[in-house]
Amino acid sequence: HAATELTPEQAAALKPYDRIVITGRFNAIGDAVSAVSRRADEEGAASFYVVDTSEFGNSGNWRVVADVYKA
């Protein structure tokens, strides 16, 4: 099962156990969220919340930071 994305309210009520950072070329924010979901799932997380997204220069590469939560 894939890790689910939390709302800001849900994330605020929970304590993350880790923070992950992924970088890559994403065509849309949805693609980045899917990549975070896969990584969170690999780490055994039940859910995640994207904290920050930023573009690296003009290369089209993105850096996505997310907190991950157990259950």
Rank of each mutant, 00 (worst) to 15 (best):
R63P: 01
L14T: 06
R39A: 11
V36T: 04
V64A: 01
G30C: 12
S47E: 03
W62L: 06
A45I: 04
S59H: 09
S47F: 15
N61Q: 14
S37M: 12
R25E: 08
V21F: 07
G30K: 14
V64G: 00
A71M: 12
R63M: 12
S59L: 10
F48A: 00
N58R: 09
A11H: 04
D67L: 15
A13S: 13
S34M: 14
D52T: 11
V51W: 04
V50A: 00
Y17R: 01
P16C: 07
L14Y: 07
L6Q: 02
T4D: 06
A66R: 00
D18L: 15
I22T: 01
I29Y: 14
N27Y: 10
E55G: 06
A28V: 09
N61F: 15
P8A: 15
A13G: 12
L6P: 03
Y69R: 00
E43L: 15
A46M: 11
G24W: 04
Q10D: 06
G60M: 05
R38A: 10
Y17I: 03
S34Y: 11
N61D: 13
N27I: 10
G44M: 05
S54R: 13
G57N: 08
D18N: 13
G24M: 05
A35S: 05
H1S: 10
D67Y: 14
A11M: 04
G57H: 06
A71D: 14
N27E: 11
Y69G: 00
G60N: 06
N27G: 11
A66Y: 06
G44Y: 04
V51P: 00
A32N: 01
T4P: 03
Y17M: 04
A66N: 00
I22G: 00
L14W: 07
D67P: 00
A2H: 14
I22E: 00
I29K: 11
V50E: 02
A3C: 07
N27W: 09
G24C: 07
K70S: 08
V65H: 02
I22Y: 00
V33I: 15
V36Q: 02
A45C: 11
R19C: 05
N58T: 13
V64H: 00
R38G: 05
V64L: 07
Q10N: 04
E42W: 09
A66G: 02
P8D: 09
T4W: 10
V36A: 07
L6N: 03
S37D: 02
A13P: 06
F48S: 01
D67F: 14
Y17V: 03
Y49H: 07
N58M: 11
R19F: 04
G60H: 06
E55D: 08
N27Q: 11
D31C: 07
A46R: 08
K70P: 06
G30T: 13
S59E: 13
A12R: 12
I20Y: 03
I20T: 00
A3R: 03
E55Y: 14
Y69Q: 00
A3S: 08
Y69D: 00
K70E: 08
A11F: 02
D67T: 06
I20P: 00
T23S: 08
A45H: 06
F56E: 13
D18F: 11
E9I: 08
N27V: 10
R39I: 11
T23F: 14
K15F: 09
G44D: 04
F26P: 00
R39P: 01
A66V: 13
E5G: 06
G24R: 01
P8Q: 13
K70A: 10
F56S: 08
V68D: 01
V64R: 02
I20S: 00
E42H: 08
D67H: 06
A3H: 03
D67A: 05
R19D: 00
S59K: 10
E42R: 10
L6S: 01
R25F: 13
D18G: 15
G44K: 05
E55A: 08
R38W: 06
A3T: 06
E5C: 13
E42L: 12
G57R: 06
W62N: 01
V21T: 09
I20Q: 01
Y69V: 02
A2V: 12
G24T: 04
P8W: 15
Q10T: 05
A32M: 14
A40Y: 03
D31E: 12
Y69K: 03
Y69C: 03
L14H: 08
I22K: 00
F26H: 02
N27C: 10
A40R: 02
T53R: 08
G57W: 07
